[in-house]
Design a protein around this nucleic acid. Structure first.
Length: 413
RNA sequence: GCGGCCGUAGCUCAGUUGGUUAGAGCGCCAGAUUGUGAUUCUGGAUGUCGCCGGUUCAAGUCCGGUCGGCCGCCCCA
């Protein structure tokens, strides 16, 4: 424990930022609700086994980024590094969910990955998450991507993002291609970068996305995934592309788009941006038809995505300002007591009201100004005796008397 | 996990080739007679110069370590 600093890669969300955070989540939740997605939540930690099995032992997330610890009962637990595995587990654990297919879920919450922090990358970060379980049709892919685009649009950032799209094909296509690819790279192994040589064992598809110049030359001649998709995989992908076109969603095909988690099949996609540094992915996901069965559940198709809330926040415009309050400025004990009741009445009418706990009139007026109040309600002994209040508009500076029982009306606009 | 840059008041930064009590703007606090903010004027407080150690007569300035941030790689949201 070192000093009064937050743990590396974690951050305090101060009120101003918290407002932006809430804006992203609230907006996403609202759009998801328009599509009929229901919110749920799963625990922040699970048995380590779940992630190891679900995400894949060879993935970076599992092999070097998990926050894993043993609890007092000796169980190995892990702070969730992503949402999908937990939701699939919840689907298996709660039998009634299998009777609600297709299950359309919205979720949001913190994720944990032990990584070197950078701009747009923290050890505790937050995601919004969308999943559809039990829908093997391309319509689910289309809907989920359309929903993502609508959220980005509603946040005002769609025009700063590009949708990249690819298909990994069904497991047979993917496995076949993988073998062809490994054979191809083996033939050029002496020219591959060190990174890519390591990738050859763990995740050869990733080499396609290498930034190394030598690798790029080799990739130029590499067999293309699209050619190794079988008939049904091609048809599926074509249906997704056509559906997106019909929905008015523009995208770029990216044959090198290979997502890192082992469970992906068919559609893979990312919304990327060049506005937030090296971490260009704002939202990404894909189809994972084999995952639930792999975890021991009934064979159930799945597709979904996760969006990084912090990354979305970096892209977002200022959220709408909160309602400007009215500030009560009582002078003297009797007025202070009276103001308490007035305040409740105003709040009951939906008006934001603040009242200082102490201070002179001057101080209270200064506070009112700092709070960006729209009006001050001044009441002293004279006003009290007459049953009125001085209502001062803090923008114009104009002030006039208003009967106490007419105050709510006067402030409603 | 690897490579590079950086760390001075709440914020943005200045600080000569190491040399006395470390500065500015913004913000903050107080005052400018009466029961009135924001504007204006006057005054004030700010800091273990990230932390630890070393070199030196002398370190905010140089060196090492450490913590943190940023950038790139890996990977991802």
């Amino acid at each position: 424990m070192s000093k009064l600093q937050p743990v590396r890669g974690t951050h305090d969300l101060l009120p101003e930022e918290s407002r932006r955070f809430a804006h992203v989540v609230d907006t996403s939740r609202a759009v998801a609700a328009l599509y009929g997605y229901r919110e749920m939540a799963t625990p922040i930690f699970e048995f380590t086994e779940l992630f190891a099995r679900g995400i894949g032992e060879t993935s970076d997330v599992v092999s070097k980024e998990m926050y894993t610890f043993e609890d007092r009962g000796g169980d190995s637990l892990t702070l969730r590094p992503e949402y999908t595995a937990g939701i699939c587990r919840a689907f298996i654990s709660n039998g009634e969910l299998a009777q609600q297919l297709p299950l359309k879920i919205f979720a949001a919450g913190p994720m944990f990955r032990y990584e070197r922090p950078q701009k747009g990358r923290q050890r505790q970060f937050h995601q919004i998450d969308i999943e559809v379980l039990g829908a093997p049709e391309p319509g689910a892919d289309i809907e989920v991507i359309t929903l993502a685009a609508d959220i980005l649009d509603r946040l005002g950032i769609l025009d700063r993002c590009v949708l990249k799209l690819n298909s990994l094909g069904d497991p047979q296509s993917r496995a076949g291609y993988r073998q062809v690819l490994v054979d191809y790279y083996r033939g050029h192994i002496d020219k591959l970068s060190d990174d890519s040589r390591a990738r050859l064992e763990r995740n050869p598809l990733r080499i396609l996305d290498s930034k190394d110049e030598g690798d790029k030359a080799i990739n130029a001649e590499a067999p293309s995934l699209a050619e190794y998709l079988n008939q049904s995989s091609r048809e599926f992908f074509a249906a997704v592309r056509e559906g997106l076109g019909a929905a008015g969603i523009s995208f770029e095909l990216d044959p090198a788009l290979v997502r890192g988690l082992d469970y992906y099949t068919h559609t893979a996609f990312e919304f990327v941006t060049s506005h937030i540094g090296a971490q260009g992915t704002v939202l990404g996901g894909g189809r994972y038809d084999g995952l639930i069965a792999e975890l021991g559940g009934p064979p159930t198709a799945g597709i979904g995505w996760a969006g990084g809330i912090e990354r979305l926040m970096m892209l977002c415009n200022e959220p709408p300002a909160p309602a400007r309050p009215v500030v009560l400025v009582p002078l003297g004990a009797a007025a202070e007591a009276k103001a308490l009741g007035l305040g409740r009445a105003l709040r009951a009418a939906g008006i934001a009201v603040e009242q200082d706990y102490r201070g002179t009139m001057k101080r209270r007026m200064q506070r009112a100004n700092k709070l960006n109040a729209r009006a001050a309600v001044i009441l002293g002994d004279d006003e009290l005796a007459q049953g009125v209040v001085q209502l001062k508009d803090l923008d114009s500076g104009e002030q006039h008397g208003v009967a106490m029982n007419g105050l709510v009306e006067a402030l409603k606009t």
